[in-house]
Amino acid sequence: METKYNIVKQSLKAKILDGTFQPHQKINSESELMKEFDVSRHTIRLAIGDLVNQGWLYRRQGSGTYCADRSNEEVVQQVGTLKNIAIIATYISNYIFPSIIRGAESYLSQKGYHVSLFSTNNNHDNEKRVLEKILSQSYDGVIVEPTKSAMSNPNINYYLNLERQNIPYVMINAYYDELEPISLVVDDEKGGYLQTEHLIKLGHSNILGFFKSDDAQGTKRMKGFLKAHRSYQFPINPNNIVTYSSAEMDTKPIKELQRILSYTDKPTAIVCYNDQLAISLLDVLREKNLSIPEDISIVGYDDSFLANVTEVKLSTIEHPKNEMGSKAAQMILDMIKNNSNGNQIKKDTVESVVFEPKLIIRHSTQALLSENKTL
């Protein structure tokens, strides 16, 4: 069980990290803190004393306790210059992110930087804890994949605090719109368009689309899916669009595909949010004794290692995994270099990058046979 003293200490520290307490701002009095946390004066003094000793707060005799400016030169000298870069991923050890990390780590290590890896598991509470850790320690810059980037983010203040402390950050795969950060992304709307257009040109009109709804990549890929239908003047069947959240990604798409395949008018092609989902759906299609691509075509996204591991090699959209990681590393070091004179970070010194998507055609898609127009 966490002690009262530690609860007070961590709460005060969190308010410093999220910017509630600004540098040189006076914090609440001991009496006010006693009421707020329902603890003794001794407990408050222990918590404040620790934070003063660690450089988070400072006291003025006869005036009170104030938030320290941890971005000043004295503090920077105390923590040292270890040349640390933090990389924050939604899922650190699977799918395409190891390739992105290798690209970044290879470049950064050549430049003498140490890399620390963090995972949020696409969870805002985890993201908050990671950002608190980064703000508490000595990092020169941050490469971050946003958490649930299609949703309102409760941790924006932490990113603003990074900016206040002059710690540059670069966002990859997606970005928080309200921050207008430097970012590296794939044109996911165009990628979704290319997936769908490929199937339309093969003669498919009854196309099923699966899209992740809490990441910006999913919403943009769905927009491309819809735009392709409109460009080719094909009506869009609302029942052919399946959205799912991160929490549902292992269950809902499979259940929905099983349900849809029970219809008389079955789809003849599937657009998938990514290759990982496509592989999961292939198992359902096999269970239904459907052959790919003879009975149904399927196209993935990301050109991950999964696109080649099954007997059916996936048609997919290329993702510049290693290149994105390496370029993000170059950009964050450029921002650090431009900031080395102690001036405020200028975002116009480094420009955001949008990678053009490319369709890779393999064996999971083919022209619709006339006898398969209705499975």
Score class of each variant (00 low, 15 high):
I182F: 11
L184E: 03
L184H: 00
D187K: 02
D188K: 05
K190P: 07
Y193L: 08
L194Y: 00
L199E: 00
I200P: 05
K201I: 07
N206T: 12
I207R: 02
G209Q: 04
F210V: 07
K212R: 13
G218Y: 06
K220M: 05
M222I: 05
M222W: 14
L226T: 08
K227A: 11
S231A: 15
Q233V: 13
P235N: 15
N239S: 15
N239E: 15
V242M: 10
V242A: 05
V242W: 06
V242D: 01
Y244M: 03
S245K: 12
S246M: 00
E248T: 03
M249I: 05
K252V: 06
K252R: 11
K252E: 06
K255A: 05
Q258N: 13
R259E: 09
R259M: 11
I260S: 04
L261E: 07
S262V: 08
Y263T: 14
Y263A: 14
D265I: 15
D265C: 11
I270Y: 08
Y273W: 06
D275N: 00
I279P: 02
I279K: 01
I279M: 02
S280L: 12
L282N: 07
D283R: 15
V284W: 03
L285N: 04
R286S: 12
R286Q: 14
R286I: 15
E287M: 12
S291I: 14
I292K: 02
P293K: 02
D295A: 04
D295W: 01
I296M: 07
I296A: 08
V299L: 07
G300C: 01
G300M: 03
D302H: 08
D302Q: 01
D303Y: 08
D303G: 03
L306V: 01
E311P: 09
K313A: 07
L314Y: 04
L314M: 11
L314R: 11
